[in-house]
């Protein structure tokens, strides 16, 4: 097929069913950084070797998606506007910090990270932006690399992250793109917002409303620390706990996302 037809097909296939052919081009603003391959040792370590799990190289947006960028997305895809998005895909606080369907307002500075977005909405945006959400392992790999900024001291990183987790939420978030840069040049991985990952529901917890104890149930009581790879890694515990508490339609005032791409087409981690 011609490249033009292919482009049309891509847009139609990725923007969701509500506005086929809207034809909006994704925002070019964000830079993608190559995150080099590495190994991740998940906090749930059962069945995983001490050396962790190999994660291939991938590309990750240098900062989270902003309000202004998400506004362009909903402008091009009316079905994802605040009043129209399907209730099975977003809860009632979807984009609640915006003033209107197409108005950001005082609580949503254009350059601040977009929050109050569901996993489904974030996934649709990522597809529209010709990418995807990072996997948990990809995100954790990218977020563990601060040797340059913090002198190769994982304890310093842990403390820094805890400081954010332990502070109260700000009503209006600061702009994205100014946080500490990782060794790969990715910013704001810690200290700005939580971020959606593609497989957030891989945390096999007792989190579901009427659930029972699962293999990761230890994440929710003290006894389970015995199952964890590093019980003193409070920051990782908290990220996994948060992911475990989520459902795909949930939107949170502190939860945003960023876009990932495969390092080369067809060579992904998924």
């Amino acid at each position: 097929m011609t490249s033009g037809v292919r482009a049309l097909l891509v847009v139609a296939a990725l923007t969701g069913g509500f506005a086929p052919g809207a034809g909006a081009q994704p925002a070019p603003g964000v830079e993608f950084r190559l995150v080099a391959a590495g190994r991740v040792r998940p906090i749930f370590a059962a069945g995983v070797a001490d050396t962790g799990i190999a994660v291939g190289a991938f590309r990750l947006a240098a900062r989270p998606v902003t309000n202004a960028e998400f506004l362009r997305f909903v402008a091009a895809n009316p079905a994802w506007r605040r009043t129209r998005a399907p209730r099975v895909a977003v809860d009632s606080s979807y984009l609640r910090h915006w003033s209107g369907d197409l108005t950001l307002g005082p609580n949503a500075p254009p350059a601040a990270p977009v929050v109050n977005v569901s996993w489904f909405a974030a996934s649709a945006y990522a597809a529209w932006a010709q990418g995807r959400l990072p996997t948990t392992l990809e995100w954790e790999l990218a977020a563990s690399r601060f040797h340059r900024a913090l002198g190769n001291d994982p304890e310093r990183l842990n403390l820094r992250v805890l400081e954010w987790y332990g502070s109260a939420t700000r009503a209006v978030l600061p702009d994205a793109g100014h946080g500490m840069a990782s060794d790969d040049g990715v910013r704001d991985l810690h200290g700005l917002v939580w971020e959606w990952v593609e497989d957030f529901n891989a945390v096999v917890t007792s989190g579901e409303s009427r659930g029972d104890s699962g293999p990761d149930a230890g994440l929710f009581c003290a006894g389970g620390a015995a199952l964890a790879a590093d019980p003193s890694n409070y920051a990782a515990f908290m990220r996994y706990a948060l992911r475990g508490s989520l459902r795909g339609s949930y939107t949170l005032a502190t939860l945003g996302f960023r876009v990932a791409r495969d390092a080369e087409p067809g060579k992904g981690n998924r």
Partner: peptide
């Protein structure tokens, strides 16, 4: 189980 902990695990902005 968990004295209710398992059934009351709640994300920000939500209820159990």
């Amino acid at each position: 189980p968990g004295g209710g902990a398992a059934s009351s695990f709640t994300a920000p902005g939500h209820s159990s």
